[in-house]
């Protein structure tokens, strides 16, 4: 936007959107902040009409000193990190494969994207009952067919199972972004590298990966923000048992199962801070990448 005039026009145009978004975010945010400093146990007769007791930072202190806090942080990091690793690696591989000329390309591409359109609850149920169930599941049948003991994935390898389910959902997203990035790579660059004597692996490491770096950071950034909040998958499968209680799930339990709104809100504020730290960190990486 070049002129003063067009700049102020632009501001005017985006004002409604900004106002709406701010309201959308600010009202829940300030309510969460408000509750986090109050004792609010609806089952014990606390209510907004009677006024809530101010408890200072007590909720915050209780949330982090609770024995479930650190395991929840750990579970969150393992799930988010695991899904990121799986989706980025498989996403790059799939993107490179899908970029090749092949028969039935269009259909294969649609199939690859399909999981993204399945609702999280549905996909978690599918995985839980059709694949990972130790009695009727597909994997159990395969294991039995080759003479092995069926495995109760969701209790014995709960985190791994969750990472698998969530990765399956997010792989299409990663693949799609990485595929478009792959397609934007200048063919002549690859040919130049080929003439320069770079073998397949070198072309991948020195030409393709650097070209994909920006797309990979974008995938990581967007996925992290969404993955920090995964919930349905846990509720449907393990309900937070077997070490799969993430921060989000812990907050849910505090508010809805223990009916402690104040404590849950304090947890929510921690989650906001954590998400922002991640976001700032990632924005810097992306910013650096965009400058280059």
């Amino acid at each position: 936007m070049a002129t003063q005039h067009s700049r102020s026009a632009a501001r005017l145009m985006i004002a409604p959107a900004v106002t709406l978004l701010l309201g959308w975010m600010l009202i829940p945010l300030s309510m969460t902040l408000f509750f986090s400093f109050k004792k609010y146990l609806p089952m014990r007769g606390d209510s907004l009409e009677n006024g809530l007791d101010w408890v200072g930072f007590e909720n915050y202190a209780r949330f982090v000193t609770s024995s479930s806090f650190w395991p929840a942080v750990q579970a969150t990091l393992i799930i988010v990190g695991g899904v990121l690793v799986v989706t980025v690696i498989l996403g790059v591989i799939l993107a490179l494969l899908l970029d090749q000329e092949m028969w039935g390309q269009g259909i294969v591409r649609i199939l690859v994207i399909a999981p993204f359109f399945v609702m999280p609850t549905v996909s978690a149920l599918l995985w839980k009952n059709m694949f990972m169930d130790p009695i009727n599941g597909f994997f159990a049948h395969i294991l039995k067919a080759v003479g092995l003991q069926p495995i109760a994935f969701l209790s014995q390898h709960s985190l791994g199972a969750l990472v698998t389910i969530v990765s399956w959902q997010w792989l299409p997203f990663a693949t799609l972004i990485l595929l478009t990035a792959t397609q934007s790579l200048d063919r002549e660059q690859l040919e130049a590298a080929e003439m320069d004597g770079a073998r397949w692996q070198s072309r991948f490491i020195y030409i393709m990966l650097p070209h994909l770096a920006r797309a990979i950071t974008v995938v990581i950034l967007i996925q992290t923000i969404f993955l920090l909040g995964i919930f349905a998958e846990i509720l449907v499968t393990t309900q937070g048992s077997f070490g799969t209680k993430t921060l989000t799930y812990l907050i849910f339990q505090r508010v809805l199962e223990s009916q402690n709104v104040g404590l849950g809100s304090a947890g929510g504020v921690y989650a906001i801070i954590l998400a922002n730290i991640v976001a700032i960190f990632l924005m810097r990486i992306v910013g650096k990448n965009l400058d280059a």
Binding site: Q189, E191, A193, M195, G197, A198, A213
Partner: peptide
Amino acid sequence: PAKRGLAMVFQSYALYPHMSVRKNIAFP
């Protein structure tokens, strides 16, 4: 191509954008 001992200069230059000039020239 790599074994033919020929070098090619492309119309689009086909330089490697993330490498410095030094690294570009040193790549082969």
